[in-house]
Amino acid sequence: MNKKKKMMKIETPRIPSELPVTMRQDIQSNDFLEMEMIQDCEIENSKANKVIFDKIIFRNVTFTETAFTSAELTDVIFEKCDLSNVDFSDAVIHRTEFKDCKMIGINLSGTTLRNILFDNCLADYAAFRFANTKQVIIQDSFLSKADFSYCKLQKFEFSRCTIDQVQFSGTELNGIDLSDCSFNGLGVFVENLKGCIISREQAYIFANLFGLIINE
């Protein structure tokens, strides 16, 4: 039986208890959004660059054909949102939570992530390529075939996640604990596995991946 992990502490979003509620449907490049709760709406066909989101809650919002490239997000919560295929590439995201969100194919490539929580999210095929991360927790989430190639993972925690066929090529996994995650295979370079924490059962999976034969 695996020893229960001690959860890492991260900074949570600093958001006032009461925010004005809006149903915003259009976001433009260089917009500065702050102190809003945006809920029960659809934001579609917004191709906005360098938007700033500060102290914002998105609740039950569907994003369709949307891109927020090079955005800045600070103290933001996404709750029960559909962020599938949203393009956040090259964004800087700090003290932000994604809770109960659908995020299939979300693009977080090249992002800077600090103090981020992904909780109970469906994020299959999510792209994190070249992301620079620190103080990030992903828990109780599905990440099958997600791409974490060439990422810098500092104080990064997976907990009880499905990570089948996740791509970790070029990403150092030293200190990364995968022992309570489920997978049948991963894309990873042997040299990047040094210091990765796995369970006894997972050791057999890695042995098969690299063509090793275990003599019982």
Rank of each mutant, 00 (worst) to 15 (best):
T96R: 09
F210V: 09
C196A: 15
C161N: 05
L117D: 01
N215Q: 12
S29F: 13
V76K: 03
E34S: 14
K80V: 00
E72G: 02
L178P: 04
N60Q: 07
C151P: 05
L143G: 02
R95W: 02
K9G: 00
F98Q: 06
K145N: 11
R95E: 14
F206P: 00
L193W: 00
L153D: 08
Q167W: 07
E18P: 03
D100N: 06
K80I: 01
S179R: 08
G195Q: 09
F189Y: 07
Q135P: 00
T64M: 08
A71F: 05
S149A: 11
I198P: 08
D54R: 10
R114I: 03
P20E: 14
K99L: 15
F142W: 04
F32W: 10
D140Y: 03
I197Y: 00
T162I: 04
S89W: 02
N215T: 15
A91P: 01
D124Q: 13
M1K: 13
R95Y: 07
I77Y: 02
E34F: 11
E191H: 04
E18Q: 13
I104H: 07
E34D: 10
T96M: 12
I77D: 04
A203V: 04
K152R: 15
F183P: 00
R129W: 10
E42A: 13
E11D: 12
I205F: 03
M1S: 15
K152I: 12
G175D: 08
T22F: 15
T162P: 01
S179H: 03
D87E: 13
F189L: 07
A123R: 05
Q39P: 03
M37T: 03
E18H: 11
I56E: 02
V92M: 10
I38L: 10
S17Y: 01
L212E: 11
F183E: 00
I10P: 01
S141K: 05
I93R: 07
E18T: 12
G187S: 02
E201H: 07
D140P: 01
C41W: 13
G170A: 10
S29W: 11
I138L: 04
E201L: 05
M103H: 08
I43C: 06
D164V: 05
S29L: 08
D100A: 01
S17C: 01
N208H: 12
A91T: 10
L173S: 02
E191F: 02
F78V: 04
K99M: 13
A123K: 02
F168C: 09
A91Q: 06
Q39R: 15
N2I: 13
I27P: 03
I57Q: 04
D147K: 09
S84K: 09
I137G: 02
F142G: 05
F158S: 10
R200E: 13
E172Q: 14
I77K: 13
T111M: 03
K102I: 12
I77V: 15
P20C: 14
E72L: 14
Y125P: 00
Q25N: 12
E172R: 15
R24Q: 15
A48L: 09
E216T: 10
F206V: 02
F156L: 09
D31P: 07
F168M: 12
T133C: 15
R200W: 01
V136C: 09
H94Y: 08
K194F: 04
I163M: 08
